[in-house]
Amino acid sequence: MTVLTQGLRDGSIVAWRNLLNVRRNADWLFAAVIQPVMFVLLFAYVFAGSIGSNPAAYREFLLAGIFVQTVAFNSAFTVIGLANDLQKGIIDRFRSLPMSRLAVLLGRTVSDLVVSCGALLIMSLCGLVVGWRIRGSFLDAVAAYLLLLLFAFALSWVGALIGLAAPSVEVAQSAGLVWLFPVSFISSAFVSVGGMPGPLRAFAEWNPFTSVINAVRQLFGNPSPPGLPMPHGWPVDHAVLYTVLCAAVILLIFVPLSVAKYRKVASK
C-alpha cells in the first residue's frame, strides 16, 4: 500500500469512529444543529432590522456570511476533538498502532467536514424560510457549496494544529474559537468592507473570509442591499480564484505542520 492509500483507508476508519461519536453525543448535536439555526434566526431578525434600509434584502445578503462563519467555527470541533483524544490517551494508542501517521488527522478533518455538510443543509433550509434564495444556476450553487466545504476543510487543519499544540482541553476550547472572532467579523460577513477605517479595510479586503463570502454571494446570486456598496479590487473581482488559492495555501502550510506535530505529540 502506498502512503496515500493507507492514509485514506486508515483515515476513513478514524472518520467512521468520529462520526459514531457525533451521533451518540448530545453536545455535538447541539453545536452542529441548534447553533446554526440560532445564528440564522438571530442575525436575520436582530441585525436585519437595524442595518440598511431594506431588511429583506439585508437578510438575503447576510446568509452567505452566516454560512461561512458557521463552517469556520466548526473548525473548533477539530481542535476539541483532538485535544480530547490526546487527554484520554486515545492518541497514544493510535500512535502505537502500525497505521498511517496522516490517518488520525485526516479522519478528524473529514468527519468534521461531514458535520459541516449537515450544518450547511440545516442553515440553507432555515435561510429559505427567512427569505434567502439561490438565484444563480444549479452548477453555480454546487460550486458555492463546494467552495464553502473547501474553506471549512482548510480551516479544520488550522484547528488540528491548535488541538495538538494546546496544553489542555480547556485551553484548546478557547484557543480554537478566539482567533475566529476577529477574522470572521473583520470581513464582509455582516457589513460592507467599504465602511471600515483604513487598516481594517485593507485587512478585510484581503481576508480569505471576505473572499469566500463574496464568492458565495456571487455564485448564489445574492446582491448587496442598498446602502452596502461592494468595493472593487483584485480579491473581489477574482473572489472564487482567490478563495481557492487561500485554501490551497492554508492546506500546504498546516497539513505538514500538523502531521509533524502529531508524530511527536505526547499525551497530556
Partner: peptide, 11 residues
Amino acid sequence: LSGQYAAVDEN
C-alpha cells in the same frame, strides 16, 4: 500497548 489510562472510546 495498554496505557496508563484505559484508552477506550467511551462512545
